[in-house]
Amino acid sequence: MSDNHHDKEDKKMYNKGEVITGIVIFLVIFAFPFWYNMGKAAPVPQPELTEKAKAAKECVEPKAFMKTEHMQILNSWRNSVVRNKNRLYINSSNKEFDMSLSNNCLDCHSNKAEFCDKCHTYASVTPYCFDCHIDNPKEK
């Protein structure tokens, strides 16, 4: 920049071939997850309801809310039960529910494989809930 006779040289790119090849190789590797999975998209799974869940018609909160917020609800539930000893949930229409994943949620949704796992697998999440909480059916 300081000396004029450098200007021309400065605009020249050194090792052009190698640099560009390098950038291309980097981009290809960087984009690996995209092109590797291209065209392999699995269809969006539909969680199945048990007869009991169908008969209940509504979950503790409206379906749309449960769909997106069930993890937040469960998180607040566990904090409430474990840390604040409040074990009854009062929902938006003033109905009471026992806040228990094992004994209440999974009582209706006793088909973990078709209800929980399907979406979790699709979304590639592995919640550790079931490391401890025992899924249904509870009879051996």
Binding site: E69, Q72, I73, N75, S80, R87, L88, Y89, I90
Partner: peptide, 10 residues
């Protein structure tokens, strides 16, 4: 997630 307020009682 921690902040989500819920209505709960013993």
């Amino acid at each position: 997630m921690l902040d989500m307020k819920i209505n709960a009682t013993p």
